[in-house]
């Protein structure tokens, strides 16, 4: 008994080294990117000072931060407008993507017939399609939504379709033997099996819907009707207000990162009990 405890207490050198390396890695995962980021910001600041770059070309980081606070009411109300389009279009992308995938999954013939249309929608640059949308759709919000939706729905559709079709053959046989209806097979087998694939698509679509919303505002907002972040950026560009331009850019990036983190968390919470991707590596 005592020998076992002793063996537990005294780790051999190899194990000690491994534990130390693991601890270092855990720290490094956060510290390293943070340090590099701080260094880059510092360098940015120094470059401005050393070269005496005027503020309307490249503002110093401190100025950008100050602008972010000073213009907060304006910028955040614009952010809300952009966020509204982003989330609505993400919601529509989920409904449309999953809905179409379920439809495709009903029959190989449907999928073969209609999948090419989805691909065409995906590969045509949205900026080039927008003038058409502008002609056919009157409502500004509807225009933006349609635009962002086209950009965001494809990853959900293609991933969910793949997931619905990658059900274990034996499980399918089991359902068949037990007389499962098409609906039961979809609900109890294919949709849960497609969940990891869908969540992977959702993570991509989250970022894309933000990109879609901003791009849509860019091409639509030239008329000045919209007041999303993109129009703030265009406006600031016209007025050579670089600090505000940077502040708006930072706001968009941070929003994109937050969307990704939230969707990753949701995905982890749903899959953590059963799916390989959510398992911690054990040694």
């Amino acid at each position: 008994m005592t020998t076992i405890e002793q063996a537990n207490a005294a780790l051999d050198p190899e194990e000690t080294r491994r534990v130390r390396a693991e601890r270092l890695e855990r720290l490094g995962r956060w510290l390293l990117p943070l340090a590099i980021m701080l260094f880059a910001i510092w360098l940015w600041d120094r470059v401005c000072v050393w070269n005496e770059i005027p503020q309307y070309i490249l503002p110093r980081p401190g100025v950008v931060l100050a602008t972010l606070f000073k213009d907060a009411p304006l910028l955040f109300s614009s952010l809300l407008v952009t966020l509204r389009i982003t989330f609505l279009s993400l919601l529509l992308a989920v409904v449309g993507g999953v809905g179409l995938a379920v439809l495709f999954a009903q029959s190989k013939w449907v999928e073969m017939s209609f999948f090419p249309f989805a691909v065409i929608l995906q590969v045509t640059p949205i900026v080039a399609v927008f003038p058409l949308i502008n002609i056919y759709v009157d409502n500004q919000t509807a225009k933006l939504l349609l635009c962002a939706w086209i950009v965001a729905f494809f990853p959900i559709l293609s991933n969910t379709t793949l997931g619905l079709n990658s059900v274990d053959r034996n499980l399918r046989d089991l359902f068949k033997m037990n007389g499962a209806t098409r609906w039961q097979q979809l609900w109890h087998l294919r949709l849960p099996a497609a969940m990891p694939y869908f969540l992977g698509g959702l993570k991509i679509a989250g970022g894309l819907s933000l990109i879609g919303a901003v791009v849509a505002e860019f091409v639509a907002g030239a008329s000045g009707q919209s007041s999303g972040l993109a129009s703030r950026i265009i406006e600031a560009g016209y007025r050579l207000n670089a600090p505000r331009l940077f502040a708006a850019l930072i706001l968009i990036s941070v929003t994109g990162i937050l969307i990704f983190l939230v969707l990753s968390l949701i995905s982890h919470l749903i899959l953590r009990r059963w799916h390989e991707s959510a398992l911690k590596q054990e040694h």
Binding site: L174, F175, M177, A180, H188
Partner: peptide, 29 residues
């Protein structure tokens, strides 16, 4: 056909469902 049960070479369980739900499945269907 209701009187036949099948056990596969692999366990072939629903990975997202609990043990109870897996055993319940044929009755649930």
């Amino acid at each position: 056909s209701d009187g036949v049960g099948f056990v596969f070479q692999e366990p072939t369980l629903l990975p997202w469902a609990t043990v109870f739900d897996n055993v319940w499945l044929p009755l649930r269907l």
